[in-house]
């Protein structure tokens, strides 16, 4: 924006610069400063308090030799991959169904999206109750006469993640539906006319024409869900507390416990730095695709 005036240099645009002080401080002190601080201290032997004794990569070696961390990583990978696939499929399915000029469109949309307004704590607690084997779904089906029916994912180390997944999907798929619906509504109706004239069935049009056209929406959704998955914490705390045993531990919980419970700061720093690396691996290719070629307003 051009300036009408006399002041130059540092004092040019002074009010705007003063107004931007909180933003500059947040960007530099919190986002850059605090992240760098944590990474630097992950190379020390800090325990109860931050210490400056340099130990090189020791903390990382220990971290990758810790069973709980390995389980956390594995859990997050399984949960994350399934969550991504299922949330995209379910979200797209919901959007495509709602996009069929149906009646009560607003009603259905409201129903599918309301869980997203609730907290992960509420989500986790409700599904903990529904999946309670003594009183929940299992009990209800058994009392209908199916005496051997078993559905207690939260009490079984092999299936607890799927129990968390059901709740996570319930919470997040409405958001995906919203994004997908916006994408579908942005597609030129001529596309539909053209494929109809050519006699191509609707499902094929979706698969071969519409979905490729919606690539930007899919990528944005993917990035959003992935960065949310990496932060997965509240849901596990509320629904399973990481149990049974270590079966539903996740990295975010590992970090929290190391920092604030077991007073093993540097392990927490190392683990959180690994989380940052994971996010960077996701974000950089996306940022390159999204902002690399073209310039956005």
């Amino acid at each position: 924006m051009s300036q009408s005036g006399k002041p130059t240099g540092l004092f040019k645009n002074l009010s705007a610069k003063i107004a931007a002080v909180p933003m500059v401080l947040t960007a530099l002190v919190v986002f850059v400063g605090c992240s760098v601080w944590t990474i630097v201290y992950s190379f020390t032997n800090s325990r109860l308090l931050p210490s400056t004794k340099w130990v090189g990569l020791d903390q990382y070696e220990r971290l990758w030799g810790t069973r709980r961390w390995l389980i956390s990583i594995e859990n997050l990978a399984i949960y994350g991959i399934l969550m991504l696939i299922l949330a995209l499929v379910l979200g797209f399915l919901l959007a495509a169904l709602i996009d069929q000029k149906i009646r009560f469109e607003d009603g259905f949309r409201t129903i599918f999206l309301y869980p997203y307004a609730l907290s992960f704590i509420v989500t986790g607690l409700v599904w903990q109750w529904l999946l309670n084997p003594e009183f929940g779904i299992q009990h209800a089906v058994r009392s209908l006469g199916f005496e051997t029916f078993t559905f207690d994912p939260l009490y079984n180390t092999n299936t607890v993640l799927y129990g968390v997944l059901i709740a996570g999907l319930w919470h997040t798929s409405g958001l995906v539906m919203c994004l997908m619906l916006a994408g579908l509504r942005g597609i030129d109706e001529d596309v539909w006319k053209a494929t109809k004239i050519d006699g191509i069935p609707a499902w094929k049009t979706y698969l071969l024409v519409v979905i490729p056209m919606m690539r930007p929406v899919f990528i944005t959704t993917l990035v959003l869900i992935t960065s949310a998955i990496i932060k997965l914490y509240d849901l596990v705390i509320a629904q399973t507390g990481g149990g049974p045993g270590l079966a539903s531990e996740v990295p975010a919980k590992f970090v929290f416990d190391m920092m604030f419970v077991s007073q093993n700061l540097a392990q927490g720093f190392a683990a959180s730095s690994m989380m940052l690396v994971a996010v960077i691996v996701v974000i950089i290719p996306w940022a390159y695709l999204e902002f690399g070629g073209k310039k956005h307003g």
Binding site: A20, M23, V24, T26, A27, L28, V29, V30, F31, V32, G33, C34, S35, W37, T38, I39, P50, V223, S227, I230, K231, A252, V255, F256, M259, L265, G268, F269, A271, S272, S273, M275, L276, V279, I283, A287
Partner: peptide
Amino acid sequence: VFFTILIIGAFIPYQVMIYPIVIL
């Protein structure tokens, strides 16, 4: 530049920044 840092910051896991914030 600051705006870009801000947007990238939205993706940094909170766990990375939380302890130094406690200290601050």
